[in-house]
Design a protein around this nucleic acid. Sequence first.
RNA 1: UCCUUGAUAGCUCAGCUGGUUAGAGCACAUGACUGUUAAUCAUGGGGUCCCUGGUUCGAGCCCAGGUCGAGGAGCCA
Length: 466
Amino acid sequence: MQSKRTKIKEALINQENVGKEIIVKGWVRTIRGSKFVNFIALNDGSTIDNIQLVVDVANEKAFELCSKISTGACISCTGILVQSQGKGQSFEIQASEIEIYGTADPEIYPLQKKGHTLEFLREIAHLRPRTNTFGAVLRIRHHMAFAIHKFFNDKGFFYLHAPIITGSDAEGAGEMFKVTTLDFNNVPRNEDKTVNFKEDFFGKATNLTVSGQLESELGAMALSQVYTFGPTFRAENSNTTRHLAEFWMIEPEIAFFDIDDNMDLAEEMLKYLISYAIENCKEDLEFLNKMYDNELLARLDFVVNNSFQRLTYTEGVEILKNAGQKFEYPVDWGTDLQSEHERYLVEKHFKKPVILINYPKQIKAFYMKQNEDGKTVRAMDVLFPGIGEIIGGSQREEDYDKLANRMKEMHIPLEEMYWYLDTRKFGTAPHSGFGLGFERLILFVTGMGNIRDVIPFPRTPMNAEF
RNA sequence: UCCUUGAUAGCUCAGCUGGUUAGAGCACAUGACUGUUAAUCAUGGGGUCCCUGGUUCGAGCCCAGGUCGAGGAGCCA
């Protein structure tokens, strides 16, 4: 039976089906009409467009059946695909037979024909995929995930699966979630009262990963070019439109790449992904452009067709100091740029994506390649309008001694990280990489304003529902 | 975590200077209508005014504490 179903997307584009009997299945968006004829807008998620079912309800039986169908119900419909008599759609189905798979009591079904606020939809995240907006976002999200794999595969990268559970707590990218099977009511203790993790599942303290980068580097030191694409966890008490406790990250790592190669790859990748969306998610993007953000499509085009502005942190600081604008936080060489500073550079000064490199070493991670000036490291941040930092990366320090010294300065335990240091001890190589926040990419591509609305089931402080 | 702001019908919101029985639109129910596009029209049902305490003759409204949401900041992707 399933094989006979025609997806609504195909029904709406395949002219050759006109005049033929087809079966469509999906969820009712609206039902309306009069005593003699009812109209059902049906959606099966294959496309944002609904197909209109025309149901003759002149006879008692059909009228009975239709009275059970309401917004949210799931039905199967057999009928002839015909040219529509009405305006608003070119094809419709003259229904001959309808089967109800599941009704949706209109008194309690939360989704209405009317628009809902995004805040309300977050509270019913189990049902929001059935809305136009989330259907569009989820389809785009899929296409972007696929495009990422395609981009790297076409370039000869290998997909490396970094572990989700990590035994290292020295990655230095934020607070971690603990992973344990210990009984909280009876925690084994050492003599000094500290927790005895030798009794735990792995025989040591473990956490959820905050980054796949270090493992990615291990892969790059053998396969030359690899990438990871997986979930990442940060136990920060962040309550913003740009942070999640569980998010997905793409981390390419490439041997023999310097910072310029790294910037080239980041820019090429972002442009590829955005182009891919423009080509493959047209209807969904047009919907989002119409409903939420009238400049979305223009902005996507602009990013694809213009080169990113590249400059050093030092140059950026100079621009900000000469901006003739009051900032809430002062601009000072050596301190990290605030959101308002990044905004100014991207949205006011250059009016295009910006890549900043060569940051002061004291505000960046231990593994970044140290420049000869002794003050800066070869870090790279890609800043996007409205999003801020969409990519953070760097050329890595490949010199064993320099890396080890920096780790000591930053109080990172060398013994625990022996495996990472081994890459520099045995056949070290210059290499670079970066991390792309998947949800931040989706934010930019969809024009949505809150990161909780571009992932199916967001995890944020005090929220792990569904 | 800090700052700002909000919570009234299923949803979105109004509610005056503290004063009778808390309203509207949509949704829902019933009916009308021969092709509708968030259909239209008529009628109807629907409320723990977030919680706790206080002030007052009287609190949706004022005060205190709390809970939850949103926006901004920090941390970052």
